[in-house]
């Protein structure tokens, strides 16, 4: 087990390295990016204190050095000083912008995952056991629609309906009066009143996907010999289900930790923008509108790394529940 985990962690290192290269490329990509523009403007003005300013920037990002040195400088700043660079759009360090927002993004992603599991698990089992029943067709159709409707369109429809039907403006994570207040119980309750909307909207997509996976695996497992053997033992139908096919069909749930995260980061970005949440997605958008790439690169790097960690966790959990993974023998099935 320990050696499995070590092996798995070692495999993560090149992955995160490649992500960081990709993030760096993104930062370097736009020809007319914010920093270049800014420096050009400063140079044109030709004032003395601007020269100092220019030198400070050039020094800071190693702009006079070759590319790989710039990369090294950038990555060492991040690794050792958690310095992700500067965002001109916000006039703050990237760390400041992201730190205050990534927490909400993660919270929404995690709770969406929980929502997804709690809803998809029983429905997935039920639908597989009652294959070809009305409930099966209903959820299959719902699943198709859930998969086809992206979160942000759903968010728009929800906002429209709640505004025109109930006069409620959905959006944000806090009511206006709490926005700038320090944390308090009342503020927390206010947060709960708002945060469930993005959680549900994001969760619906994942739920649709997971019900389909769950149904397929369950149907596969239900056909297996050991289910019949378990019935022949005299176990009640519920116990047969829970102790046998569900034990294996639960595996995709655990793997989902690996792919739900990128999914929520991905779909979540646009949903967050539509709902105007104080999360990382809208910050990314605003930065990108001004081709302010440091924030974008950092976002890719951070979310990519989080995803890598997520899939590490789900692989470890998978090894815990599935001995075949642990013993490195999957040929049995």
């Amino acid at each position: 087990m320990a050696s499995y985990i070590v092996k798995r962690i070692i495999r993560m290192i090149p992955q995160v390295f490649l992500i960081s290269i990709l993030a760096f490329i993104i930062i370097q990509l736009p020809p007319g990016d914010y920093l270049t523009e800014h420096l050009n403007r400063l140079r044109q003005s030709g004032r003395q204190q601007d020269e100092v300013e220019i030198r400070r920037w050039v020094q800071m990002y190693g702009l006079d050095r070759p590319m790989y040195e710039q990369y090294l400088k950038w990555i060492t700043n991040i690794v050792f000083r958690l310095d992700f660079g500067y965002t001109f759009q916000w006039n703050k360090s990237v760390r400041e912008v992201i730190a205050s927002r990534m927490g909400y993004t993660l919270a929404i992603a995690l709770f969406s995952a929980v929502f997804t599991w709690v809803v998809a698990l029983p429905i997935g089992i039920f639908v597989a056991v009652k294959q070809y029943s009305i409930a099966d067709y209903f959820f299959t159709l719902l699943g198709f629609i859930g998969l086809a409707v992206p979160g942000f369109l759903l968010a728009m429809v929800v906002m429209y309906v709640s505004y025109t039907q109930f006069g409620v403006k959905v959006g944000g994570l806090f009511s206006v009066e709490y926005q700038l207040q320090p944390w308090s119980w009342a503020k927390f309750v206010d947060l709960l009143g708002h945060i469930w909307i993005p959680i549900v909207i994001l969760g619906i997509n994942g739920t649709a996907g997971l019900i389909r996976t769950m149904r397929a695996t369950m149907l596969d497992e239900l056909r297996k010999q050991y289910v019949l053997v378990a019935r022949a033992k005299g176990l009640s139908e519920l116990k047969v289900l829970l102790r046998y096919p569900v034990r294996i069909a639960i595996n995709p749930f655990i793997s989902t930790i690996g792919w739900l995260l990128p999914w929520f980061f991905s779909g979540g970005t646009v949903v967050e923008i539509v709902l105007n949440l104080p999360t990382a997605g809208p910050a990314l958008w605003r930065a990108l509108m001004g081709q302010d790439m440091y924030l974008a690169g950092s976002y890719i790097l951070i979310s990519g790394t989080l995803v890598a960690i997520g899939s590490l966790i789900s692989d470890i959990l998978l090894a815990v529940v599935d001995p075949r993974v642990r013993f490195g023998s999957l040929e049995g099935q």
């Binding site: 297996k224 010999q225 046998y244 034990r247 294996i248 599935d322 001995p323 075949r324």
Partner: peptide, 8 residues
């Protein structure tokens, strides 16, 4: 061969 579930 498949009478026993592999994960228990």
């Amino acid at each position: 061969m498949s009478a026993l579930i592999p994960v228990r």
